Computed example of a mutant assay.
Amino acid sequence: MSVDPSRRSLLFGRKPAAQSPVVFRPPWAIAQFIEHCTRCNACVEACPTQIIVRGDGGFPELDFTRGECSFCGECRTACQSPALSAAQTWQQTIRISERCLAGQGVECRVCGESCDARAIRFILQPGRVAQPQLDSEACTGCGACIAPCPSQAIAMIQTGKTA
């Protein structure tokens, strides 16, 4: 029997989301992660950046508002189940939405300053503030730019690329 997660939101006084948010599992999560994960919290406890948290149903998920993934592999090493595999690749990148302050004429480059991979650069525009431009090939999907964004204009998305 399947449970509609939007009904759970009603109990907590939240409006149901128009669309379920994408849940990001720890790096190296296999396609059958839910079937293999034992919910032991070993990966949550092992994460040095503390971005792996217990999500719905007790399954680990990434919370990029807490920080970034360093891809250190501690979660994979701590996992005793086959839910995380070294053969699995990280296939995420970011998207910068129209809520970006630069698009509204406000000078803000905090995302670019947070990006060690230098995947976010700011392009000068005549008569406007510099606009962010994402180099999706350089983006590692670490999420370092998400938490510091003052307008919450950056979100993690699934891609087809391997990182």
Rank of each mutant, 00 (worst) to 15 (best):
A144N: 03
A130Y: 05
H36T: 13
T162Q: 15
R95W: 07
G55P: 06
G57Y: 11
I96F: 06
L10R: 12
Q133G: 02
G112A: 09
F59A: 12
Q80V: 14
F64S: 06
R54L: 10
C145P: 06
L101P: 00
V3R: 14
I96G: 04
L84H: 02
P16Q: 14
Q131R: 13
R121V: 14
D116C: 08
R118K: 15
I51K: 02
C111E: 03
T159E: 06
D63I: 06
D4K: 12
E113P: 00
S70P: 00
L62Y: 01
E68S: 10
G58A: 10
P148V: 13
E137Q: 14
S114D: 08
P126C: 03
G112K: 08
Q125V: 15
C145S: 09
I51A: 02
G103M: 02
P82V: 14
P5E: 10
S151V: 07
A153L: 02
C142D: 07
T38A: 15
R14F: 14
D63Q: 07
Q50N: 13
A86F: 07
C79W: 05
A155I: 10
C142E: 05
G67I: 08
F12T: 11
Q133T: 11
V106H: 05
R66S: 00
E45K: 13
A83S: 14
T162W: 06
W90M: 09
C108I: 08
A18I: 14
D4V: 11
A138D: 02
D63R: 10
F122D: 04
V44F: 04
P148I: 12
V110W: 05
T140W: 01
D4M: 07
F71W: 06
V22M: 09
N41D: 15
Q158N: 14
E74K: 13
E98M: 09
P27C: 09
S114P: 02
L11G: 05
L11T: 06
G67Y: 01
G57C: 10
L134N: 05
G73A: 06
D135N: 14
C111W: 04
R121A: 11
A153N: 02
G73K: 05
A147Y: 04
T140V: 08
A155Y: 02
A83D: 03
A86G: 08
R118H: 12
V23I: 15
C100G: 03
P126Y: 06
S6L: 05
L62C: 10
P148D: 08
R66T: 00
R54D: 09
F71V: 12
P5Q: 10
A153W: 01
L124I: 07
P150R: 09
P26I: 12
R128H: 12
R66A: 03
R7A: 07
P148C: 13
V22L: 11
D116T: 13
A87V: 07
G58P: 02
S114F: 11
W90Y: 12
Q92E: 11
D116L: 14
Q125G: 04
G103N: 03
S85A: 12
G73Q: 04
Q133L: 14
E35S: 12
R99Y: 00
E45H: 10
M1L: 12
C75T: 05
W28A: 04
M1I: 15
G112S: 07
Q91T: 12
C75I: 07
A153K: 03
P150S: 05
I51D: 02
A17V: 08
E61W: 01
L11C: 01
M156G: 04
T140D: 02
F12Q: 12
I34C: 01
Q32L: 09
P82A: 10
A31I: 10
V23C: 04
I157S: 08
C115Q: 10
